[in-house]
């Protein structure tokens, strides 16, 4: 990602902007609007149908960023190494992708996203704040097979329609959807591995049961 951006606003100004102080928010808007427009523009300009809607999409992204007392923006941790502008760009790029897909009528994206879900942005926030996205992108190239890589590039990067991507890959619609779901889980696991978190098991109860059994056996063995 380029590093052309001017310096971030001081944290005290950002805090006042997010708290709703109009003058500080106006300064915040002027500082970060070019960032938002750039991040959203990258998700939009390849689609002729979206270009006339670009200003509306940018405004929708701003509305999402500032919804519920700027909840999304408050997740940024100024003490970490991720600059605020980069955080704004990433979150805007993601929101822009979702909103663009809605305008394009790509129904495979859940169109209503409850902000409440973001209360648990744990892994993605830690990945962003630790500046590990480059390493995650390398892992995508190193560890995913050709089909998954293609699916990632065409669907999550280019924003193509899922069924079109599936058709090019020779997959049926249902199989494409399942493959996309599996790809999301794989990326989640890769991210957790980068963060040093043990990957989640599909059957946590069985593992717990096995551990209890082993402990019981050891205890009985020791007592004999």
């Amino acid at each position: 990602m380029s590093n052309l951006e001017p310096p971030d606003l001081p944290p005290s100004v950002v805090a006042r902007a997010l708290d709703g102080e109009e003058t500080a928010f106006a300064l915040f808007y002027r500082r970060y609007d070019p960032t938002v427009r750039w991040a959203v523009g990258l998700r939009v300009y390849r689609w002729p149908r979206l270009v006339p809607l670009f200003d509306d999409i940018v405004q929708e992204v701003w509305c999402e960023l500032t919804r519920r007392g700027c909840k999304r923006l408050r997740y940024h941790d100024a003490e970490r190494r991720l600059p605020l502008w980069r955080y704004v760009a990433l979150v805007s790029g993601r929101l822009g992708w979702r909103i663009a897909k809605r305008h394009l009528g790509h129904q495979e994206v859940e169109l209503v996203e409850a902000l409440e879900e973001d209360d648990d942005w744990g892994v993605v926030m830690r990945i962003m704040h630790a500046d590990l996205l480059d390493r995650l992108a390398q892992a995508v190239h190193g560890e995913l097979d050709e089909t998954d890589r293609e699916l990632f590039e065409e669907y999550f990067v280019r924003g193509e329609m899922l069924k079109d991507v599936g058709a090019r890959l020779g997959l049926k619609e249902n199989a494409t959807y399942k493959r996309k779901e599996r790809l999301q889980r794989k990326l989640q696991t890769l991210a957790e591995r980068l963060l040093g978190k043990p990957p989640r098991t599909e059957h946590p109860d069985l593992v717990a049961l096995a551990l209890v059994l082993v402990a019981t056996l050891v205890e009985h063995g020791g007592g004999a």
């Binding site: 790029g93 995650l136 992108a137 999550f156 989640q188």
Partner: peptide, 15 residues
């Protein structure tokens, strides 16, 4: 957590 956030943010990063 919504399972698609990591991959969507990564998509934005790659672009």
């Amino acid at each position: 957590m919504s399972k698609d956030q990591v991959i969507q943010v990564l998509g934005a990063h790659v672009v």
